[in-house]
Design a protein around this nucleic acid. Structure first.
Lengths: 338, 338
DNA sequence: ATGAAAGCGCTAACAT
DNA sequence: ATGTTAGCGCTTTCAT
């Protein structure tokens, strides 16, 4: 039944090197208490046989897999792939592996993936843009150390990775300071907390300045095409609109194109601001004003915090990490001329 | 020492359900030979205790981990993140997990990652854009089933996932048919086989039409910025150039911007074609003519082939999969006017 | 239809 | 500085 290619074991290495199995184990774990001559012999035997430590066996006895589980909403989105890269870079440096799932924003898939990862006994679990409910997450936290990206959770065991939604106020303040008073907001994925948080953030800014809350276009796909449709909807409903804040850059880029297609000049007639500062933001026409988010760093820091926490084994080392976002003003926003 | 949160075991489930450990095992593996009443009891106990099968323990005895290892060159690149998504979708459907590493195009990192994945006893290994030598790959194939994306390997055990480099001829033929005779090529990552294969493909087309081989700009970073610099270099060296084929869309987009910055009109003065058809290709100005590659499908099919192969356990089921690319003509290429 | 015993490859605790 | 023993949680014979 065993079809996995047969690999040499510690026992075979031990026999080949003429030592006990435990000595091999010591060498493999860089225990300093082995004579360097025996170490050499063992290492030689291991190399000769093509030996590789059996991680699952080790996991079984130590209870630690050195694997981090990562749940991501949509890898096709640059925002998430950058997070993955950040997580990767942090884990790899510590000898950890990343077991990853793309949930496609679907809570059922997400739950199935959590089960899969937990079965593999991941040491920690990073949930980014999770669609699960607080209570479900609490239950997951019973089984593994959990870090949430972009979302807060009341359970103190749950680590809070970077949250950046609040930074949307930078974009909204910017438009207000340029004199815009009729402002629209293009929303993100429906039922997503991040989307909700950003929309609220935008509303608060307008309210603080005594302006009417933004006209909100929501329910559109989070893509360039979705932004295109959303912008058309906004212009149909409120033709006097002059400022747009979008949930992310993709939507903003689509919005720019829709405005241009209807003969509006950006930013002369309409100002549009995005969120994320993805790579292409600087290369569309006009270059996009947006909120720059250190995405890679978000992934890196969160993974680091998670690993530190699992390794600290109870010792408190803080349970959240902060990141700084800033506004990048490019060519898609300008003073209000109407 | 065990800091991994304690999880219930089969033994505990067995005790709770008042059956033997083996019966629990049978239920967990959907063995039809258990009375449905006992099955219900066991399932109930499992749910109540929050039991989850211990995959590492199972791996230890079966020799199969139900994990696929995936090595990727650069997740920040949309091409690769799409491949990952394809692999994900295929594996998830079969109950497999994906253990992933980003190698950053670095052979040393790549080798370290291979060791990590092999330690975890992945059932199969997908190497995309590997920088390793044929012989190193042969040695890896001794330890696990290997599938290569975008590269051929003489060892029949090594699976050949989709190869699309040859499709670059579509872009080159297109420019030639538009009357371009002085053609430049912007190369991909140095020492990469994919880059070499595409450059050769481009050369062959020109040679077949009796044209001089392309002027090649290589060694530039594979990014928009790199394409920008490469294009400036090409225009400095050969101002009469009218057609450009780029290794990928990012480079092509950078090239367009460099040409425009120097006052050339695209496509009136210079035609530029890319490769990949990434999401943004249709949304730059002018929209990019490029070779469309079914990236997601490449990942999906390769993973499928790999899983089928490991599960077939020796039975021959073919060792490569094919994909079709096609040219998408947009606004960045036009007839030669010089 | 269900159970008992052995063992997968490794590390932990205790020798020596 | 090195070896012995037990056992991690599961599946695999082989019984019953």
């Amino acid at each position: 039944m065993s079809l996995g290619i047969k690999m040499p074991t510690m026992k075979e290495v031990a026999e080949c090197a003429g030592v006990s199995i435990k000595t091999v184990s010591r060498v493999m774990n860089s225990d300093p208490l082995v004579k360097s001559s025996t170490r050499e012999t063992v290492l030689g035997a291991a190399r000769q046989l093509g030996y590789r430590p059996n991680a699952p066996a080790r996991t079984l006895v130590t209870g630690r897999s050195k694997i981090i589980g990562l749940l991501i909403a949509d890898l096709g989105n640059y925002f998430f792939s950058e997070i993955v890269r950040g997580v990767q870079n942090a884990t790899e440096a510590q000898g950890y592996g990343v077991l990853m799932c793309d949930t496609g924003e679907n809570p059922d898939t997400e739950m199935r993936c959590v089960d899969l990862l937990l079965s593999h006994r991941v040491d920690g679990l990073i949930l980014s843009s999770s669609r699960l409910q607080d209570e479900q997450i609490t239950r997951i936290a019973d089984a593994a150390t959990v870090a949430l990206m972009n979302r807060f959770h009341p359970d103190p065991r749950v680590l809070t990775g970077a949250i950046q939604d609040e930074a949307v106020h930078l974009a909204a303040e910017h438009l207000v300071s340029l004199g815009h008073t009729t402002i629209g907001y293009i929303g993100g994925p429906i039922y997503s907390r991040a989307a909700w948080a950003r929309e609220e953030g935008c509303k608060h800014v307008l309210a603080r300045h005594g302006l009417e809350g933004p006209l909100v276009a929501s329910g559109f796909p989070v893509s360039i095409e979705g932004g295109y449709s959303a912008m058309n909807w906004l212009l149909d409903v409120r033709p006097t609109i002059t400022g747009i804040v979008a949930y992310n850059d993709m939507l903003a880029i689509g919005a720019i194109r829709a405005a241009q297609a209807r003969g509006y000049r950006v930013p002369d007639d309409i100002s549009i601001a995005g969120f994320d500062d993805i790579h292409f933001a600087a290369h569309v026409n006009p270059p996009l004003t947006t909120v720059s988010v250190p995405i890679h760093r978000m992934g890196f820091d969160t993974a680091q915090l998670l690993i530190d926490t699992t390794e600290a084994n109870g010792k408190a080392i803080g349970n959240r990490c902060r990141i700084e976002c800033h506004l990048v003003i490019r060519g898609s926003t300008g003073p209000c001329n109407r």
